[in-house]
C-alpha cells in the first residue's frame, strides 16, 4: 500500500480519537483517548522516516499520561448541564471553523504536493553534515552542532517551566506542613 493511504488512515483515527476525548464525560477515559492520539502521532512519525522523533514522542506521551492521571484521577468530575448559551456557543464555533476550513482549501492547493520537500537549505546539511561534524546521526549533528544555540534556548525554557511548576506547588505543600 502507498504511504498516503496509511497516513490518511492514521490521521482519521487521530481525529476521531481527539473528538472522543473532548466529548467524553469521564475524565480518565478522555486522558486515555489523548494517549491514543499521541501514540498515533508516534506511528505517523515512523511512517515519515523519523525514528528519532518516534522514540521521543512515545516516551513523552507515557510521561504526560502519568502526570495527568496522577494529578486528576481522584477528582469527582462534576457534570456540566448543557445550558442554552453553551449550545449556541458550540453552534457558532462549529459554523465559524467550517467556514475557515472551506476558505483554507485554496491555500493548501498552492503548496507543492505531498512527497516533495519545501525547504532547500537542508541540501547542505545532507551533503556536508558527516564531514563537518563527524556524527552519523544527522539530526543529532544539527541540534548539537549547527544549531546549538537552539538547544541552549530549549534547555533554558525547560528549566524555567520546571522552576515555575516547582515554585507554584512547593509553596502550598509547605503551608500544609506548617498547619500540622
Amino acid at each position: 500500500m502507498p504511504i498516503e493511504t496509511w497516513l490518511t488512515f492514521v490521521l482519521g483515527f487521530m481525529i476521531i480519537g481527539s473528538i472522543v476525548a473532548l466529548e467524553l464525560k469521564d475524565i480518565l477515559s478522555s486522558i486515555i483517548s489523548i494517549g491514543v492520539v499521541g501514540l498515533g502521532v508516534s506511528v505517523a512519525f515512523l511512517f515519515l522516516q523519523a525514528p528519532d522523533l518516534a522514540i521521543v514522542q512515545f516516551l513523552f506521551e507515557i510521561f504526560a499520561i502519568i502526570i495527568l492521571v496522577k494529578v486528576f484521577i481522584k477528582k469527582d468530575y462534576h457534570y456540566e448541564e448543557p445550558s442554552r448559551i453553551n449550545k449556541m456557543l458550540i453552534g457558532v464555533t462549529v459554523i465559524t471553523l467550517a467556514v475557515i476550513f472551506i476558505f483554507s482549501i485554496s491555500v493548501f492547493k498552492n503548496i507543492p504536493p505531498f512527497g516533495e520537500p519545501l525547504l532547500h537549505t537542508s541540501k547542505y546539511y545532507l551533503e556536508n553534515g558527516a564531514g563537518d561534524t563527524g556524527a552519523a546521526n544527522l539530526v543529532s549533528s544539527i541540534i548539537l552542532d549547527y544549531r546549538a544555540y537552539d538547544t541552549l534556548g530549549e534547555v533554558t525554557v525547560l528549566f524555567t517551566a520546571i522552576l515555575g511548576s516547582v515554585t507554584v506547588l512547593r509553596l502550598s505543600i509547605r503551608k500544609n506542613k506548617n498547619k500540622e
Binding site: L53, F63, I67, L119, V139, I142, I143, A161
Partner: peptide, 26 residues
C-alpha cells in the same frame, strides 16, 4: 534521505511542549 532540519526543530518542540504541560497542570 529525508530533510533532517524540520526533524531537529520538532525534537526541541516536543520537549518544550511537555514542560509547558507540566506548568499548566501545576
Amino acid at each position: 534521505m529525508v530533510d533532517p532540519l524540520p526533524q531537529a526543530l520538532v525534537l526541541t518542540s516536543i520537549v518544550i511542549e511537555l514542560g509547558t504541560t507540566a506548568l499548566l497542570v501545576s
